[in-house]
Amino acid sequence: MASPSKVGPAISTEVYLNNQTDEDLSTFDKKDWYGTGNQPLNVPSHQTRYFQHLADSNVGSSIAGSVFVIKQNIKWVVAWRNGNNEDNKVYTEITTDSPINWDNINAQLKKATNHAEASKLGFKSTLDIDPTSNKPNLNAKLEEA
């Protein structure tokens, strides 16, 4: 049996939301499967916002997602899985779904890697997370495609 690649439980996920578009982003939805954090209400055009998502102390995992409205009905999904004794993973999509299908996002996240990209509706999303840190930086960037 292979040994786990991580060194113990997650502490937190350091989330950096980099908006390189000409649109101001506003919060649409969020999901905390494990852990908690105060995501920003908005991410102004050409700015970066940061928040810390603290891991659930009982489970040792920081697993969550944030959704921002780009414009009209276009949304940017940023999701991460910083789980106990597993590699860190990220998932992203650009969607017009309403409501957000969190079950599908969770399923995609479970089989994801530490890098994710999505291009749709004139926008491109790129996410990267350190695969083995228990307090990783998640760098999420949205730009015009």
Rank of each mutant, 00 (worst) to 15 (best):
M1E: 08
A2Q: 12
S3M: 13
S5F: 10
K6Q: 14
V7C: 12
V7D: 14
G8E: 11
P9L: 02
A10T: 07
I11F: 00
T13C: 09
E14R: 00
V15Q: 01
Y16W: 11
Y16D: 01
N18Q: 08
N18P: 07
N19L: 13
N19I: 13
Q20H: 12
D22R: 09
D22L: 09
E23H: 14
E23M: 13
E23I: 06
L25Y: 06
S26M: 04
S26A: 10
F28Y: 12
D29W: 08
K30T: 12
K31I: 03
D32V: 02
W33F: 07
Y34R: 03
G35S: 07
N38K: 07
P40Q: 09
N42C: 05
V43T: 11
P44W: 03
S45Q: 13
S45L: 06
H46A: 09
H46W: 10
Q47K: 08
Q47P: 07
F51L: 01
F51T: 01
H53V: 01
L54S: 02
L54D: 00
A55R: 01
S57T: 09
G60D: 03
G60I: 05
S61T: 04
S62G: 06
S62R: 00
S62L: 00
I63G: 01
I63T: 13
G65P: 11
V67K: 04
V67I: 14
V67F: 05
F68N: 07
F68G: 02
F68C: 08
V69R: 14
I70E: 10
I70P: 12
Q72E: 15
Q72S: 15
N73F: 12
N73Q: 15
I74S: 08
I74Q: 10
I74F: 11
K75L: 09
V77T: 10
A79Y: 09
W80V: 01
W80P: 03
N82Q: 04
N84I: 04
E86K: 04
Y91M: 02
E93R: 13
I94D: 14
T95A: 13
D97Q: 15
D97G: 10
I100F: 10
N101M: 10
N104Y: 14
N104Q: 14
N104C: 06
N106A: 07
Q108A: 10
Q108G: 04
L109V: 09
L109S: 02
L109P: 12
K111T: 15
K111N: 15
T113V: 10
N114P: 14
H115C: 04
E117I: 09
E117V: 12
A118M: 11
K120E: 15
K120H: 12
K120G: 09
L121Q: 15
G122R: 05
K124W: 05
L127F: 07
I129W: 02
I129M: 03
T132Q: 11
K135G: 00
K135R: 07
P136K: 01
N137W: 08
N137L: 10
K141H: 09
K141L: 13
K141M: 15
L142S: 13
E143H: 08
